[in-house]
């Protein structure tokens, strides 16, 4: 894929975003293993070209929905890096005030409608967001990220049908990282793949190399352009590979070493470096990104945990537990 129609600056920017996601993920996994971050981390290392390529053609007004592996989607859409790190650490100042953590990162100020702990959970939300935006006369579109596991859940079919019936501008992005949790998706998924399922509902789309950010961006640009012209929903099937286990504590012993070795040779960061053709410049970006992540991690480590009383905030206005507790 020639990079001729992208400016060098833009390609460097895409690389910087991908690198930011990679270092963020690796840093958070290490911090979790060191006992600094509670819970667990679903790392998207290896999949960075998908959110970065898609979000590169979206405006701030456009919305996205995400998955349990959602840090990259948020960062690609422009979520604040420091506040996301604070959220993963469960500290004051986090995107969700420490109430969500890794699986529920959200930044509504940039149109990121939230990661989601339920597989396929974002799909109905995405089509509804597009429907609500239409009611307001908005021109914004919605990109809906989900994994290869989600295509076997009912809301996937419901959402495709729904978007097609109402002609909604939703870009369905299947970020196919090859695994449904611990299971190779090929062993649990019938038929020729997610794109065929979309086409069966009348939703046109493309299959793309999900490790090539230029290819992802180009496909997303075509499809979103058709959507903005009133073409209704589109589907983008991005083939990629999850470098980590399902969660940070999963050693992924179910996967063949040669498969991982082959995938690592197709690391999206390496692919983009090759397209950049300027190793020194890429190295300089790497160093800047690593310094920036170290800076925000240091802030997160020093930030306080939220006070206990905040557990009762933002449940609901009517019949709120804070009112009950005060009785």
């Amino acid at each position: 894929m020639p990079a001729a129609d992208l400016s060098a600056d833009h390609l460097f920017d895409l690389y910087r975003r991908m690198k930011t996601i990679r270092v963020f993920e690796d840093t958070c996994v290490a911090a979790h293993k060191a006992g600094e971050i509670p819970g667990y981390i679903h790392s998207s290392a290896g999949q960075e070209a998908v959110p970065v390529g898609v979000c590169a053609v979206l405006t701030r007004e456009d919305r996205i929905t995400s998955t349990h592996r959602g840090h990259g989607h948020g960062l690609a859409k422009g979520a604040d890096l420091e506040r996301m790190m604070l959220e993963l650490y469960g500290r004051v100042g986090g995107l969700c005030g420490g109430k969500g953590g890794s699986m529920h990162v959200a930044d509504f100020s940039v149109g990121m409608l939230g990661a989601n702990g339920i597989v396929a959970g974002g799909i109905p939300i995405a089509v509804g967001a597009a429907q609500g935006l239409r009611l307001f006369g908005s021109q914004a579109v919605v990109a809906c990220f989900f994994g290869d596991g989600a295509v076997n859940r009912g809301p996937f079919m419901e959402g495709l049908n729904w978007a097609a019936v109402y002609g909604l501008p939703v870009l369905f992005v299947c970020e196919d990282n090859t695994f449904s949790a611990f299971t190779h998706s090929s062993t649990t998924t019938a038929g020729p793949g997610p794109l065929a399922r979309a086409q069966a509902c009348g939703v046109a789309g493309e299959r793309v190399d999900g490790n090539d950010v230029i290819a992802v961006r180009a496909a997303a640009e075509r499809l979103v352009g058709e959507m903005r012209a009133g073409g209704g929903p589109r589907f983008l099937w991005c083939r990629t590979y999850r470098f980590s286990g399902h969660v940070s504590i999963d050693p992924a012993t179910y996967r063949k070493q040669e498969d991982l070795d082959a995938a690592l040779k197709r690391d999206p960061l390496l692919v983009t470096r090759g397209q950049l053709g300027d190793a020194a410049a890429a190295d300089a970006i790497d160093a800047e990104v690593e310094a920036e992540i170290a800076r925000v991690q240091d802030i997160a480590r020093k930030a306080p945990y939220p006070p206990r009383a905040e557990a009762f905030d933002d449940v609901q206005d009517i019949g709120s537990p804070a009112v009950e507790a005060a009785r």
């Binding site: 939300i125 509804g128 967001a129 935006l133 049908n161 729904w162």
Partner: peptide, 23 residues
């Protein structure tokens, strides 16, 4: 007044999505 498919998950979930953008 939107007639929907018999698709309860998405009736409920689309309602949420539309609420998240202000309707």
């Amino acid at each position: 007044v939107v007639n929907t498919p018999i698709a309860e998950s998405t009736i409920m979930g689309a309602g949420l999505g539309a609420a998240l953008v202000g309707t």
